[in-house]
Amino acid sequence: MARLKDFLQNWPMYLLLIPGIVFALIFSYAPMVGIIIAFENFNPIQGLFGSSYIGWQNFQVFFEGQQWIQVTFNTLFLNTLFIVAGTVMGIFLAIFFTEIGKHWIIRVVQSVVILPNFISWPIVAMIALVFLQSPNGVVDQTMTQLHMTPIQFYSQPGVWPVTLMIMNTWKTAGFGAIIYMAAIMGFDRQLYEAARIDGASRMQSIFQITLPMLRPMIAILLLLSVGNMFRGNTDMIYSLVGNNSLLYPTTNVIDTYVFRNVLDGVNFGITGAVGLMQSVMGFVLVVTMNWIARKLNPEYALF
């Protein structure tokens, strides 16, 4: 009753909400209904609501196959690499920039390291080609000059986890540093002054003041990114790898597996089941991590 009264009183407010609510209903909630495809022997002619119900069979087929271990492992492994490298580099840049202090060079470099974040993955893929292609890529030529055996990047899956990690760090670390910098600038300057008067070196003040004070924030940001571990980055990986199946063993993640299946129009039932599994696992992980975050510090929990 109270809700209804609120509705009558504030109807102009609800009017403003209509476009957003309609959008969410169509593009977020309607696909949730479509999850039933995971339990169907989907047939495009019979459609979503006409295909026959087959229970858990799609999940069974996926888990009996070889691919699920590969794509699940790759998703978790690559995300771990990205999170660790991105966090370390982000913190390093933030501390470095704030330690050196104000200088126009620092301001310019700060802008320059943020720039790659705004360059799209397809363009990064073009740049990757300049570096990695054989025989006239930059890496290949340099290795030849140094009398080393060049790496055939586009046919060697083994080198890609580290390659992807480097590219991801190059693209995102500068932007990631902003948030740590904002925190460091908020720290009490008097602490550093006092430490300096007591004879602390720069390194000591970094390790004894800055890092310990950043720790809660690092912990929270890590928890939140761990919450997203099951989500893969199709934008990055499909741009860089495309349909080069030689590289799938180390680069195919759940998202690209689903994406490629949809592009090829194959196995909608099984692919839908994989997508549902990923959504459920992701949901459980996010909620768990957020629960832990709230235990650590209610301020930082997302909800």
Binding site: M32, G34, F259, F268
Partner: peptide, 17 residues
């Protein structure tokens, strides 16, 4: 609105939609 950030139907239902 927040719930749509936590859970999604995934690509296949979106594609069919």
């Amino acid at each position: 609105f927040y719930f749509t950030m936590l859970f999604s139907g995934g690509l296949v239902p979106t594609y069919i939609l």
